[in-house]
Amino acid sequence: MHIAEGYLPVSHAFAWTAASLPCALWSCRSLDLPGQSRPKRLLVAASAGFLFAMTAMKFPSVAGSSSHPTGIALGTVLLGVSAMPVLALIVLLFQALLMAHGGLTTLGANLFALGVAGPWAVRIVWGASQALRIPEAAGLAAASVAGSLATYAMTSLQLALAFPDPASGLASSFVRFGAIFALAQTPVAVAEAFFTLLVWRSLQPGLRKAVAR
């Protein structure tokens, strides 16, 4: 989902940055970084490491973008949806500055997809699965798939807004971008769900309870 540097028109880049900025500020406030305990900060760093590793496994996709696992489900379930914009911001910055993956002008758009749209989808599905008493593994897998697909749906929307079809308009362009992404992303999202479950199960129950507190 990393839209390449310079790919979005300048006005779109600014608009997505403006849309993402309040989310990042809210995330900073909710994480309470200056007053945060070091053990909590370690967990935040571990989740960011997981996010970085997952999103770095990329392969080319449509329109200057890439397909890869997103890794947002684990962070969202462990730390809450409010932590994700900051984690995604730091991870996306590192990927731009270490591997030229994504970019600085497209940071706002990428942050909105990976740090806002995806985590909220995970939150909604995970919350619903908890409320409906669906087994934890199934709920987490569904949340992971939903998060991954929501991230790519948002990227498709961003690309469709930037490059609407001259003949049939925005909706057609969105469907086209989404359909091409779905070809690659659906199997990746399913594989990611299994992987997230593997990592979740390997975390000690004590740590999970501590996180939940």
Binding site: C28, L33, R41, L42, A45, A48, V86, I90, V91, F94
Partner: peptide, 14 residues
């Protein structure tokens, strides 16, 4: 500063 500190920690982690 707090954000840079968190980023530095994540960098070490990576």
């Amino acid at each position: 500063r707090p954000l840079a500190d968190l980023a530095a920690l994540i960098y070490r982690f990576l």
